[in-house]
Design a protein around this nucleic acid. Sequence first.
DNA 1: CTGAAAGCGCTAACAA
DNA 2: TTGTTAGCGCTTTCAG
Lengths: 349, 349
Amino acid sequence: MSVTLADVARRAGVSPATASRALSDRPHVAVATRARVRAAAEELAFVASPDAAGLARGTTGRVGVVLPHLSRWFFGAVLEGIESVLRHERIDLLLYRVGDAADRRAFFDTLPARRKVDALVVLGLPVDARERERLELMGVTIVAAVGQVAGHPFVGVDDHVAGRQAVDHLVHLGHRRIGMIAATDPQSDGYPDARSVAYRDSLADAGIPYDEDLVAVVDWGGAGGAEGMARLLGLREPPTAVYAHSDEVALGAVRTLRRAGLRVPEDLSVIGIDDHPLADLTDLTTVRQPAREQGEVAARMVLAALADAPGADVPGARAPGGVTLPTQLVVRRSTAPPRDGVTAPPRDG
Amino acid sequence: MSVTLADVARRAGVSPATASRALSDRPHVAVATRARVRAAAEELAFVASPDAAGLARGTTGRVGVVLPHLSRWFFGAVLEGIESVLRHERIDLLLYRVGDAADRRAFFDTLPARRKVDALVVLGLPVDARERERLELMGVTIVAAVGQVAGHPFVGVDDHVAGRQAVDHLVHLGHRRIGMIAATDPQSDGYPDARSVAYRDSLADAGIPYDEDLVAVVDWGGAGGAEGMARLLGLREPPTAVYAHSDEVALGAVRTLRRAGLRVPEDLSVIGIDDHPLADLTDLTTVRQPAREQGEVAARMVLAALADAPGADVPGARAPGGVTLPTQLVVRRSTAPPRDGVTAPPRDG
DNA sequence: CTGAAAGCGCTAACAA
DNA sequence: TTGTTAGCGCTTTCAG
């Protein structure tokens, strides 16, 4: 079919073994021989079969990424980060999307990546005990990003901190009646919780009583945000500021406000989380989390693990170090002090 | 290292050949034998090595996707479409991102996907003659999506039509002074051209003279859009409506307007292209192009080609059929008739 | 430094 | 129906 190593060897007048060594830059090859082999390979436009090489060597040269979404900016950005560092090592990326609960079950049950990758990056999928157990069956390096997998290295941000940065900002602005639009993502739950807890904690610290009516739980995404805001607006006494679990949700809320003839931030402040590129375009105040960078770190962890354990599969020999990247408040123009003194100023004004 | 087919065969008391047949649901295996083999495989938690199988069979079970961006909604959505149909055939996805000119050259020069995939989807990268020639070297099925590769099947939309739908809408609304923010994407140029040509054609049909001052050429993205709009606003006589090459660009333009204290669409109309999810959230009028569906069609083309030519690599035997999906005007709230009769009504008002 | 030989784990004729 | 015999294309001891 195609040119093989044997062809090259023959043409260079050496054995396949030597040709192999010569082409993969391994020692014990005379410079002249190496040159000859290289020339032969060049002339024949030879390209080694990674699969055959891998079979013989026991590695695949690929790493898999399991993630819940492909079309959301955040996941794409993380993926870009992963890709950008792995490409330098000539490692290929295999994608496994688990869109819904069924996908998820199927993935962990059948482990489609088994025997196909040297490592797996679990992205944005907090994994439970059973799932983790299944994963271990793959016998490969596992790294978690944006969510954890017990016993394995991970990268992420502190969602509690991020949430506090957002709500604290609102509090410092003088808001006392702060609503929350909490988004649930059936796939990657976990951090929504931390973001919700942050809300309660921030209010508590500010001495603001928690009012259940002020939190709307909706589906992730713009539509959810729009709906949540509508609910909040329907309150006898609506909030003067709203904390949304993500920028998409926040943008949905903004649309509801706009359609209701309310102005942001004059009539109501809105803050999101993530710093989606469109947040900048829409002047949305938010808390930035480094997306691409999380991917880069995850990929470096993979590389490190692969270098450490060249095939070693000793379950105990893993170093489940974790890296938490900082988040940062980005004040734009969707937040401002409450319009009038209808509520008391914050304690630490 | 891990459980092999030989282990299973031994345990089931059959030869590896039979075990292989039994496990891959091929004929000529007694039901009882098949059951026995299956049981053995089950007990040993056996999983065949796809690489070894592929090596022997001459296929990889993977298809590659080359694309310029991972974090843009549009590409992610197309990718989701591809993934969703390929997963059913248990085909894996290998990603190749060519972010800039250097990546691009490197990709076509070194062909990193060579010998690693059964087919390649070229997504959003109009390929030139030399690049195409390199691609052929891979000797695999090639399908183009959102851009073409001469001589190979492709899916896409008609960008000229899309552009006309957008500009015609503005014209029908009564606008005569219509600006364009043309975006150039160093990677995937090609369609921006069609979108620009549509602008000229639409104006010509409406009897509106082409005014070079009214077109701002900027980089793709929100920042570009913002900048382009600023330029247009600086004109002695600014346009009453603006046609942007994409929703992101349009949103950037909207931000500039908002910051300038201008209202959309009262003071100025803005239209984009794509129907990005955030277009809905921002009430942006646009022309929708089916993203996910383009991916699905591309994947089906791959499947068809793979089924047709099970290994056949006869260069002439390809059926380079193309599929063009429809685009559709989505009127929201960023476009309206011009404010006053400062310009003459359109011919076909 | 180089070559021969033995796989890596599976599939595919071809017999039996 | 099942087993035997060859590989797929490369790497890797182990001699030489």
